[in-house]
Design a protein around this nucleic acid. Structure first.
Lengths: 342, 342
DNA sequence: GTGAAAGCGCTAACAT
DNA sequence: ATGTTAGCGCTTTCAC
């Protein structure tokens, strides 16, 4: 590959001048500039960013770690980040943690060697510790937060979304509303769970721990949990389910089908996070939608702003709003279902 | 960040020895090795891969360009590649072309500056020309091929899959089978189309160009094309549809629903490429499944093998088999539908 | 406005 | 077995 030396030689200037002509055109006489640019074009010159990075101590690279690129939610975050980073001349390095703190740690180590100038991470439960490996690198926590107060965060308004979801079910007349909730040490899971609880209590309904089952964000977990909830004795079985993330919702819907429960006749279901699947399934799913792509772009914009203006005020906490989209998977509870008493 | 100099100093050796102790442990006395390793651990030393790459002329990096990371098919390819690359100590740099040759070109240019040692690409229609920018870099064409004979390819057996799909419809008794086919200059599209045609002709059925509509791989295109095919006069309307990729299938199913056609009663549908959505939609979709994740890992394995043994024989063309999965979106044509005559 | 030269962190000759 | 040194390609002082 043509180096800047080749360009300089062809243009009959020193490498210093060639470099200037290419990166700071106004520092060089217009005639030499033209000679250099022509030579560069002719040779198909592409700067070696490795060498440049080493010299400048800036890689123009940001690291991105999401927990599961196969989850459309995360794919969309990643796309938002990449598009925004690209607009600002940064290259995004994408890694997967698969929700596994050990893999997250490895990704961070690998990343570290590449000297990213910033990091955007959807943290796993082990992130708080893992992130010490990259302390000093400006970081944005995306979607979830570890609780580190020094870090910029970009999240959706989980509390309001979960509140709206639960209240929607309550307003339809449901009194036994189950929830399938994500891992306890993931901020989004606890926020959604807390909001669910306070919506119930705000409406004077009891919070029944037996109707709240944990899951590890995967389809399987949702399936298992839903199966348990839906096979409770008739008078204790929930008439509605609020499910904490998109993948688990898939599992829950399939569990309901397996049990031959009609949606929403026998069971109302509301999911968190919209998706292609939610829109096209039968019946279309009522969901709390998140501005997924925007979460990604915001994270990138905030990070890059921070790179340009280091220590410019305290870390920001951006929160984007969520929207309840009522489709057809929620309705009033089945008239024959026993009414809640006591 | 701690450099190898810091490690050397702490271990009281030269940087050369420190380097050897870390990368070629057996070239160094065990006592010094231990001193160096301890020092490295103590300082949390992580080699600067930028400097190493510059020195060695090898970045241990491979470039990956897919056309649409939001498409689960491509997300899965990417995951397969990343997992395999990781196992071999390579880092994958992921880019999106969004099916746009111009973006593909930009991705290649950016990539070039990072000196990837190899490239895995799902080519767009402009790839043949674009790839000249990276000539000299070992390349694997994945899923689709540009026709360049010097390049390793990893593809699914599109012809057999499309043949099986069409024959399945024929064996159910369909005689007017429509197809929605991808862009003409994409190899997978033409292979699937040709197989469709030869299955028809092999069964003595006419190939009717009016029943074959093109689409640009997106949901919208599938929707539009299906709408046109399904609103043909009753005696010309296809009773079955074979659709050339997963996204367009979504559009076609929604179009059928919009027209109040029941699947498979009024219309049989078969898609190419399986997905979460295909399995959970109602009715579950009959599809030609591809070994998506394996396509990705194979591409990475082949590329890495090639990096280890340069010019070791002619380029390989790996083809993984596809599977017809019969679910419930296909059945015999509706008895009241007019039978094909003439 | 341009050139000479140093140096980013690392590793591979080449010494010893 | 270990140290000395050069150099990967680039940018940036520092001279002129």
């Amino acid at each position: 590959m043509a180096s800047i030396q080749d360009v300089a030689q062809l243009a009959q200037v020193s490498t210093a001048t060639a470099s200037r002509a290419l990166s700071r055109p106004d520092m060089v006489a217009s005639t030499t500039r033209d000679r250099v640019l022509t030579a560069a074009r002719e040779l198909g010159y592409q700067p070696n960013v490795i060498a440049r990075s080493l010299r400048q101590g800036e890689t123009r690279t940001i690291g991105v770690i999401v927990t599961d690129i196969l989850n459309p939610f995360h794919a969309q975050l990643a796309k938002g980040i990449q598009d925004a980073a690209d607009r600002h001349g940064y290259t995004a390095f994408l890694f997967n943690s698969d929700e596994d703190p050990t893999k997250e740690r490895r990704a961070l180590d690998t990343l570290r060697g590449h000297l990213p100038q910033g990091l955007i991470i959807v943290p796993t439960s082990g992130a708080r510790e893992n992130l010490q490996a990259l302390s000093g690198v400006p970081t944005v926590e995306l979607d979830r937060v570890t609780g580190n107060p020094d870090v910029t965060t970009v999240t959706a308004d989980n509390a309001t979304g979960a509140l709206a979801a639960t209240r929607h079910l309550i307003s339809l007349g449901h009194t036994r509303i189950g929830m399938i909730v994500g891992q306890q040490d993931i901020s989004t899971a606890t926020l959604r769970h807390d909001a669910y609880r306070s919506a119930l209590e705000g409406a004077g309904l009891p919070y029944d721990p037996a109707l709240v089952l944990p899951g590890n964000h995967r389809e399987d977990d949702g399936h298992r949990a839903a199966l348990r909830l839906l096979t409770l004795p008739e008078d204790r079985r929930p008439t509605a389910l609020f499910i904490g993330n998109n993948e688990m919702t898939v599992g829950a819907v399939l569990a309901a089908r397996a049990l031959n429960l009609s949606i929403p006749g026998d069971l109302s279901i509301i999911g968190f996070d919209d998706s292609r699947w939610a829109q096209t399934m039968n019946p279309p799913l009522t969901v709390v939608a998140q501005p997924t792509y925007d979460l990604g772009t915001q994270a990138a914009e905030q990070l890059i702003r921070q790179l340009r203006h280091p220590r410019d005020g305290p870390p920001l906490h951006i929160q984007l709003s969520t929207t309840l989209i009522v489709r057809h998977s929620t309705s009033a509870p089945h008239p024959t279902a026993p009414v809640y008493t006591h």
